[in-house]
C-alpha cells in the first residue's frame, strides 16, 4: 500500500493540480466535442404543446455552423458563431446578417436554450471561477455583460453534468443537464441536453445528438458567405 500511494499520487497529480479555471476550460472543451458534424433534434416543450426542430450542425469545437432542416417553414435558416460574432442567414431575407451583441443572449428558435448555450464560451469569458465542495462556482467578472449573479457547474469525472444559473438575488432560474457523453476521437460529446426554465413550470427544451461524423469540417463552413450556400 505504501508503495502504491506515491504511484497514485503521481498519476493523479495533473488533475489535482488543475485550477478551477483549467477544470472549467477542460470541461467546456469536452462539452463542444471534437470537430464533427451531426444532426441535432430539438424539442421545445411548452405547457400543452411541443415543437420539434432538426438541425444540421458543423463544428470544430470553437466555431459552430448550424442549419435548420425542419420544420419546413423555417428550413434554410442558418447560424454561424465565430467567437463574439453571430451571423444569421434567412432564405426570405436572401442575405446574411451580423446580429447585434444582444442576439447572443436571446433564446434560440423559441427554445429555452440561448445561442450562448449552444455555441458560446461565455462561462469562461465572462466569469471568474472558484471551486466549492467539488462544484465550480462562477461569478461574473467586473463589467461582464451577463445578467446572471452566479453559475454553478457540476462536473462528473471532468465532464459537465449540470449547469445551474442563478439570478442576482440568489434564486436558481435555469438548469441545464447534460448526459450520454460519447467518447469520440479522444474527445467527448454530450448526446443529450435538457434545459429547464425554473421560473416557469412546463417550459423545457430537450436536445438529442445523432448521426455524428467525427472529423475535420471544411474551413469554408466557418465563413459567413457559406451560410447562404451551405457548406
Amino acid at each position: 500500500m505504501r508503495k502504491v500511494f506515491p504511484v497514485l499520487l503521481i498519476l493523479l497529480a495533473p488533475v489535482l493540480a488543475q485550477t478551477p479555471l483549467e477544470k472549467l476550460r477542460t470541461a467546456l472543451d469536452r462539452l463542444r466535442g471534437p470537430a464533427h458534424q451531426a444532426v441535432y433534434a430539438l424539442w421545445v416543450e411548452r405547457p400543452g404543446q411541443s415543437k420539434l426542430y432538426r438541425l444540421k450542425v458543423y463544428t470544430d469545437g470553437e466555431r459552430v455552423h448550424l442549419r435548420v432542416l425542419e420544420p419546413k417553414a423555417e428550413a434554410g435558416q442558418a447560424y454561424l458563431s465565430l467567437g463574439q460574432d453571430l451571423y444569421l442567414y434567412d432564405p426570405r431575407l436572401g442575405r446574411t446578417l451580423r446580429l447585434p451583441p444582444t442576439g447572443r443572449s436571446e433564446r434560440f428558435l423559441g427554445s429555452d436554450l440561448t445561442y450562448q448555450d449552444l455555441m458560446g464560451r461565455d462561462l469562461e469569458e465572462l466569469f471568474q471561477v472558484a471551486e466549492e465542495r467539488g462544484v465550480l462556482v462562477l461569478s461574473p467578472k467586473p463589467g461582464a455583460a451577463t445578467p446572471y449573479g452566479r453559475v454553478e457547474v457540476h462536473l462528473k469525472e471532468g465532464l459537465v453534468e449540470r449547469v445551474l444559473y442563478f439570478d442576482q438575488r440568489g434564486q436558481a432560474v435555469r438548469e441545464l443537464r447534460l448526459g450520454a457523453y460519447q467518447r469520440l476521437d479522444g474527445a467527448y460529446l454530450p448526446r443529450e441536453m435538457e434545459l429547464k426554465d425554473l421560473l416557469r413550470p412546463g417550459y423545457r427544451t430537450r436536445l438529442e445528438v445523432s448521426e455524428v461524423q467525427v472529423g475535420g469540417v471544411p474551413e469554408r463552413c466557418f465563413h459567413p458567405l457559406y451560410l447562404e450556400r451551405g457548406c
Partner: peptide, 18 residues
C-alpha cells in the same frame, strides 16, 4: 433591478455589465 445588481447595457457595437 436593485442597487448592487448588474444591468447589461448593449449598443450595436458592444455590451457592458454595469
Amino acid at each position: 433591478v436593485r442597487v448592487g445588481e448588474r444591468l447589461v447595457v448593449e449598443t450595436g457595437k458592444a455590451a457592458l455589465g454595469l
